[in-house]
Nucleic acid binder design. Structure first.
Length: 260
DNA sequence: ATGCCTAAGCCCCTTAGA
């Protein structure tokens, strides 16, 4: 089964591109980030028309995550990690949605960007990663096939960015961000794309600005992490890079794993 | 040192993204 993740940067602006991608690649599960709409603005019937059922956690203007499944309803397990956003009194942002689909636990996340650093947004990112690690440790203890995927907003290593210098001051590749990501892997998770591309050079994001796509100036921040029981079933993993080059594209490309 | 683009809101400018 193919399990995919796509930061779509606005579900309203991206709907035609998104439906194309679903119909052309037909993932069993598709996790979306940055739907940027409130719950009642989610176009569930558009997906139903092409055979996908969905659960979603929306928010006005920003963030927002959804899990789509081909021909079956995702069973919601958990929404949110129980951590408030960085602004006073705003409550929790819509960044985490956990579900079960065909016996596989699916955890869809949109990790805080954390810029600028240092500052409250960077502190929020690190606190969020700490909460995520605690949840992922609980998931490991279940000893079940589990896939944690989405936009992690972390460039794990220097080989995951087109130019280290260009991003050196960015929250995405600060040592604290990288250490927190490395701790997740150290607990026993497999970074599927890194494992199958050990020399790096694989990008999932290209900025809209400065001709980044045309120059292939990208980096890898969308990840698919597998529990040992899921990693045993790993067949292949990849990035649907051509979708970044289409009209009205997201600035991210979809990422996916194939489990046997 | 800054803007480079894009999306959304209440919206012809500001905020946020990465």
């Amino acid at each position: 089964m193919r399990i995919a993740s796509f930061n779509i940067n606005g579900i309203k602006a991206r709907l035609p591109r998104l439906k194309e991608w679903l119909e052309e690649t037909r993932p069993a599960v598709a996790c979306l980030q940055e739907i940027k709409t409130q719950d009642d603005g989610f176009p569930a019937d558009e997906f139903a028309q092409i055979g996908y059922q969905a659960i979603w956690h929306g928010q006005k203007s920003f963030n927002g995550v959804a899990v789509l499944a081909d021909g079956t309803a995702p069973v919601e397990i958990k929404r949110g990690l129980g951590i408030d956003g960085p602004n006073d009194g705003e409550g929790e942002q819509a960044r985490y949605l956990e579900a079960e689909v065909n016996g596989v636990r699916i955890c869809n996340l949109y990790l805080p960007n954390g810029n600028p650093h240092p500052g409250p947004k960077f502190d929020y990112k690190l606190a969020w990663m700490q909460r995520l690690r605690a949840r992922m440790q609980e998931l490991l203890a279940m000893e079940q096939p589990c896939v944690v995927l989405g936009d992690f907003n972390v460039i794990p290593q220097d080989q995951d960015v087109w130019a280290v210098k260009a991003m050196a001051d960015d929250a995405l590749m600060q040592p604290e961000s990288r250490d927190a990501y490395a701790r997740l892997l150290g607990d026993g998770w497999t970074d599927a794309i890194a494992t199958l591309n050990p020399r790096g050079g694989v990008w999932t994001y290209w900025d809209y600005q400065a001709g980044a796509w045309q120059k292939d100036h990208g980096f890898r921040i969308d990840h698919v992490l597998l529990s040992p029981q899921a990693a045993d079933r790993l067949v292949s993993a990849g990035v649907d890079k051509p979708y970044r080059g289409r009209e009205k594209a997201s600035d991210h490309a979809p990422v996916w794993v194939e489990l046997g």
